[in-house]
Nucleic acid binder design. Structure first.
Length: 605
DNA sequence: GCTGTGTTGTTCGT
DNA sequence: ACGAACAACACAGC
């Protein structure tokens, strides 16, 4: 039987160097169906803000047009519904013989793809999985290292060096087979139910009204069209970062023009306060959505640096790609990657507002902690009263991007630096607002900054005042993103509460009225948090330790703190003390909704 | 068990 | 501009 191939796009919104696409074409199909399942899990259950939705829709539309440019009969066929019902329908209706997709190391994706593979096999469809999201196949790296991936960067680099160079990129196809007969009657929505997802739509906060993206399965005109922001009823994107393969390749070309910059790139020496233009490549969203192939990026970099004296990993640009490689590899072998409890790679802390689970592994409402809730809310909205932190958080929300070191600064502040709030809460906020959000990079860096893994010198704390000042003494970033402070003199721009009343008046910004007072005493919060971090470090247990899972580690830390406080005769400042007696109070909304959380941790929805 | 290393801290000294 | 003190972590390699 001549092959009829369904290419399931997810992480590979491009035609250049796309191994799954190439594998599909290598089958010499009589009918070829590039397909996207518009998945209600992604639309309603993952925190995604308008900026990232816009980038995704741009990229899907661009891919569809690129297909059509090669073969006018082709397009990206978008079917709106859960993959576990859409795919079996297509297998049958389009008489599919082969399902081809790119390996996605994300834990949710692994579950989803295992289910899809099972369904394909039940339908007698052959499944072909290619790697292309990373330079190497994560499964091969782990196999080569006897089932484990090194957690330290150096050994990881050595390991992949022993495998050799990554494969060279392959060109985009110049011709494509036809799709064959794609005619379908509009399916019954009941067969592709999205109700349970919409009921708990975590993205309702960025909608102007109801989501109409699932009104039909085949699209409003029955032609498998790419959804629009209007159909999704999303607020307008505020970011200027736009998606699509063409923009990715142009961005790459433009960045590589300045060869000196590429050759001497050292990440820690790039400036987190630069935003117009930023001091880094701006290619991360394209790697996230696969509008740019990481192998193409890698080999284009090699072309520039080979034969010259150049910066080296970890600080070089290649070094950045190797971090991406390592974090994706580690994630691929850890289904509890995105949480602390149950995660063997993540140190246990008794953070405020940490995820907790019932016996069935369902998320429970968070413990009440009014002070921490207020801190989280102010942090996520850029209202902490620390201009540097607030500028970065507002930059994140508005532009969908902040510099890596800016991410460090705000993440450290929220977790081990000043607020002692679980990295899981910060990770959610980044997931909503970052255009380049990616589970491997985002989670790994949150673990890094919270000293939960990779980084352990927890006493090195970013100052919310000094760190920014070092890079941007006149506070240009603050003046741009916190306009109420625009006329505060340089001397006070990082600490406006120290400005005399006359100065505040002259600048038209009264602290406590036009801009908030600092939400906490920086020095006292740092000391208190450092002591908590040290106490958790002394426990030396990871998130999957029995005492972490049964709550006894938490109790132990609480009791030790109480002893110490009683001994010192200092009033108790821990807002969690009352929670055992009074289980769960309604939590405040905090930039995103936690109130309807009841996600199965591992099961495919 | 010891030593060196770890992308990217801060403050104070010269 | 750069070095040392701060208080002191984990991990790899020997």
């Amino acid at each position: 039987m001549a092959p009829r191939v369904l290419l399931w796009h997810r992480t590979d919104l491009r035609l250049h160097d796309a191994p799954a696409l190439q594998a599909a074409l290598d089958l010499k199909p009589e009918a070829f169906f590039p397909t996207w399942t518009w998945n209600p899990h992604y639309v309603h259950r993952q925190a995604v803000g308008p900026n990232r939705f816009q980038f995704l829709l741009d990229s899907m539309q661009a891919l569809s047009e690129s297909y059509a440019a090669v073969n006018a009969k082709q397009k990206l066929h978008v079917l709106r519904g859960p993959p576990e019902t859409i795919l079996p329908m297509l297998f049958k209706r389009w008489k599919i013989t082969h399902l081809v997709y790119e390996y996605d190391p994300d834990p949710y994706a692994c579950d989803r793809d295992e289910e899809a593979t099972k369904l394909a096999e039940e339908a007698g469809v052959e499944v072909i999985v290619k790697h292309g999201f990373t330079l190497y196949d994560p499964r091969k790296i782990i196999e080569k290292n006897k089932g484990k991936a090194p957690i330290a960067y150096g050994p990881f680099c050595k390991l992949i060096a022993s495998i050799g160079d990554p494969a060279k990129p392959i060109d985009a196809p110049t011709e494509l087979p036809d799709p064959g007969d794609t005619s379908l009657d509009e399916p019954d929505r009941a067969d592709h139910d999205v109700g349970p997802y919409r009921e708990r739509d975590v993205n309702h906060v960025s909608r102007k009204g109801d989501d109409h993206g699932f009104d039909t399965v085949l699209g409003p005109n029955g032609d498998f069209s790419v959804p629009t922001m209007e159909e999704l009823n999303l607020e307008e994107a505020t970011s200027t970062i736009r998606g699509g393969e063409k923009l990715a390749l142009e961005g790459l070309d433009a960045y590589l023009e300045d060869k000196k910059k590429v050759i001497n790139f050292e990440k820690p020496k790039t400036n987190p306060a630069e935003f117009d233009p930023p001091s880094t490549t701006q290619l991360s969203p394209h790697l996230k959505f696969g509008t740019l192939s990481c192998r193409l990026f890698y080999w284009r970099l090699r072309e520039v640096i080979d034969g010259t004296k150049h910066s080296e990993p970890p600080t070089s640009l290649i070094g950045q790609l190797l971090f991406r490689e390592q974090f994706n590899t580690l994630m691929s072998m850890n289904r509890k990657w995105r949480q602390m409890l149950g995660n063997p790679m993540c140190r246990f802390f008794d953070w405020h507002l940490a995820n907790q689970y019932d016996e069935e592994g369902e998320l429970k409402p968070l413990d009440s902690n009014p002070e921490a809730e207020e801190h989280l809310k102010k942090w996520s909205e850029g209202q902490t009263g620390f201009p540097w932190i607030d500028a970065l958080m507002r930059q994140l929300k508005e532009t969908g991007w902040i510099h890596h070191l800016g991410r460090h600064s705000v993440a450290c502040f929220l977790t081990r630096g000043h607020c002692y709030i679980s990295w899981e809460r910060g990770e959610e906020v980044f997931a909503r607002y970052l255009v380049d959000w990616n589970s491997a990079m985002n989670v790994a860096n949150w673990m890094w900054l919270s000293a939960s893994q990779f980084f352990h010198q927890y006493y090195r704390v970013y100052s919310p005042i000094a760190f920014g000042k070092k890079h941007d003494p006149s506070g240009k970033l603050i003046r741009r993103f916190v306009p109420e402070l625009a006329d505060i003199p340089d001397k006070y721009i990082y600490e406006p509460w120290k400005a005399p009343e006359s100065v505040q008046k002259k600048a038209g910004c009264i602290i406590g009225k036009d801009y908030p007072e600092p939400m906490l005493d920086e020095k006292a919060a740092k000391e208190d948090t450092l002591a908590r971090v040290k106490a958790s470090y002394d426990l030396k247990i990871m998130g999957d330790d029995p005492s972490a899972l049964d709550g006894s580690a938490r109790e132990k830390l609480r009791a030790a703190r109480k002893d110490k406080i009683d001994g010192d005769d200092v009033p108790d400042q821990d807002g969690t003390e009352e929670s055992p007696a009074k289980p769960t109070r309604k939590r405040q909304a905090s930039g995103q909704s936690h109130d309807k959380r009841k996600t199965k941790q591992t099961k495919l929805k």
